[in-house]
Design a binder for these strands. Structure first.
Lengths: 247, 247
DNA sequence: CGGCGCGTTGACTGTAGTCAAATAAAGTGG
DNA sequence: CCACTTTATTTGACTACAGTCAACGCGCCG
C-alpha cells in the first residue's frame, strides 16, 4: 500500500497551513498561483487542507509510476519534470517555476518524475480533497484551467526552442528563458543569475550532449554575449546579440 | 474591424447545428470531444450556438495575431498548429486530431496559425458565447480542462520526441505517432496509412531539413521497417524494428 | 509539350557526437 | 586546515551525422 504510507510521510514532514498565523497572506505566489482567483471562503477551504513542505536540491517530489496522492503549488525554488526512458536516460520535458502547479490530477499514477532543482518549498494538498474542492468551487477548476493553459503555452514555447536546428540558437534561447525566469518583475530580465540546471540537465533539455553545451557556451562567451561566473553563475553582457543568436 | 467581419464570414460559410435533424447524435467525436461529458440540457445549450464548417487542405482556420472570435472541435480531418518566426519560417508546434479543440480561450488574439492538413470539418462556436456557457456549466469547464490536460500531455510527448539526438529516432517516433493516430481503435496502430504531412512539414516538426527526412526515410525503408507507397502512402513492415529505432 | 511543385539523390562542408584527457570545484577524512 | 577523493566542467582529436547547394525524377496542370 504505497498511498497511505506516502500520505503518512507527507503528514510527518510537512506543516499544516492552518497552523500558520498568517495563513496565505504573506505567500510569495499569492497573486499568481491557482489560489489567486479564489474568494475568501474558497481560500479558507483550501488552506484548511494545505500543508507546506520543503524539498532539498535533487530530492524527488513525485516519482513516475507512483500513485498520485498529492498535488500543489511550487512556492519557491524550481523543479524539473522529466521522463526516464528505457535505458535509464533522463529526458527533461519541462521546468517548473514558483506559482507552477505540481502533480497530476484525475489520473491514478504520476507519469513523470518531478525533482527539485534547488531547495524548494511547496504548498501541498491531498489530491482527493483538492479534487473534491474543485468540484465544489468552479472558480478553482477555472484557476487550474488557466494554469494548465499557461503550462501548455510554455510547453509549446519549449517545442519551438528545441526544434531549432543549430545548438547555439537553442542554447541562447535557453539562457534567455532562464534570464526571464530569474527576473523579478514579470517582464523584467535578469542580467546576473545562477543557472538552475547542470550542464547535463541543459543538454537533456535541449537535446544535445554536455560537451556541446560546454563548447557553445564558450563560443557565446567569446562572442561577448555572456560571461560565465563560476560553475553556475552567468551574466548577460550583450542582450541584443544573445537575442539575435537565439533566432 | 476584423472581428465582426470574421464573424459574418463564419455565418456565411457554415451551417447551424440546430438545423440538422440529428443534432449531435451521429457526430463522429461525440464520445471523445469536449461535449462528451455534458448532459442533455448542456448539450442542447451548446448545440444552439454551434455551426459546422468544412475547410480545404491548406486553408487557414485561425491566423496568428487575429482576434480570437471563435473556437470549437475538430470533427474530422487534421490540422497543424504552427508559429511563423521572424524570417517567415514555419515551425509546427502541434498536430490536432479529431476531437481536438481549436482556438484560444480567454485571450484577445490567437497566437498561432491553425491550418487544415486535409479536408476537415469543424464544429464552431462563437468564443464569447462559449465562454459564457463555460461559466454557466461547470461540466463544460471541466471538459475543457480534461482536453487541455490531454494536449499538454501530447505536447510533452512531442518534446520528448524531438529532443532525441539522432534524426532517425525522431523520424521513427513520428511515423509511429502517425500510425497510432491513423489507427481506428484507441490503442490500435494502423499499418497502412497516408502521411498527414509533407516532407517539409515533417522536417519542421522534428527540427531538421527536407533532405534529411528523405534520406532517413530511405534508410528506414532499406532496413525493412517501412515501405513508401507513392508520395504520402506508408506501410509499416516491421513494427518492432521501427519501435527499436525510435528509442 | 513545358513549367511547376514535390520528393529523392549526390557531392561537399560544417557541426555535433564520441572517446579520452586535463582542469576546476566540491566534498571527505585525517 | 590540509591532502585526497569524487564530481562537474572544459578542452582536444577524431568520426559520424546533418546541413547546404545542386541536379534529377516524377506526377500534375496549363
Amino acid at each position: 500500500m504505497a498511498a497511505p504510507t506516502a500520505a503518512a510521510c507527507l503528514k510527518a514532514c510537512s506543516k499544516p497551513l492552518a497552523d500558520r498565523p498568517d495563513r496565505c497572506a504573506t505567500c510569495a505566489v499569492r497573486d499568481s498561483a491557482v489560489c489567486a482567483a479564489l474568494n475568501e471562503r474558497e481560500l479558507e477551504d483550501l488552506s484548511r487542507i494545505g500543508r507546506t513542505r520543503t524539498f532539498q536540491r535533487g530530492e524527488t517530489i513525485f516519482a513516475a509510476g507512483e500513485p498520485s496522492y498529492a498535488c500543489g503549488t511550487l512556492v519557491s525554488g524550481a523543479a524539473k519534470l522529466s521522463a526516464i526512458d528505457g535505458d535509464g536516460v533522463e529526458r527533461i520535458l519541462a521546468l517548473i517555476h514558483p506559482a507552477g502547479f505540481l502533480g497530476q490530477l484525475f489520473t491514478p499514477t504520476n507519469s513523470h518524475e518531478i525533482i527539485a532543482l534547488t531547495e524548494s518549498t511547496m504548498c501541498v494538498f491531498p489530491r482527493a480533497d483538492f479534487e473534491r474542492l474543485m468540484a465544489a468551487h468552479p472558480a478553482l477548476t477555472r484557476s487550474i484551467l488557466d494554469r494548465t493553459l499557461a503550462e501548455l503555452d510554455a510547453s509549446r514555447a519549449l517545442t519551438g526552442l528545441i526544434g531549432r536546428r543549430d545548438i547555439k540558437a537553442r542554447l541562447a534561447g535557453l539562457i534567455l528563458a532562464f534570464a526571464r525566469a530569474a527576473g523579478t518583475s514579470p517582464c523584467g530580465i535578469a542580467t546576473d543569475f545562477e543557472l538552475p540546471l547542470s550542464r547535463e540537465e541543459m543538454a537533456s533539455l535541449i537535446g544535445t550532449t554536455i560537451e556541446t553545451v560546454s563548447r557553445r557556451m564558450t563560443e557565446l562567451e567569446q562572442a561577448g554575449a555572456i560571461e560565465r561566473q563560476g560553475l553556475r553563475g552567468l551574466a548577460i553582457r550583450d542582450l541584443p546579440a544573445l537575442e539575435r543568436l537565439a533566432t
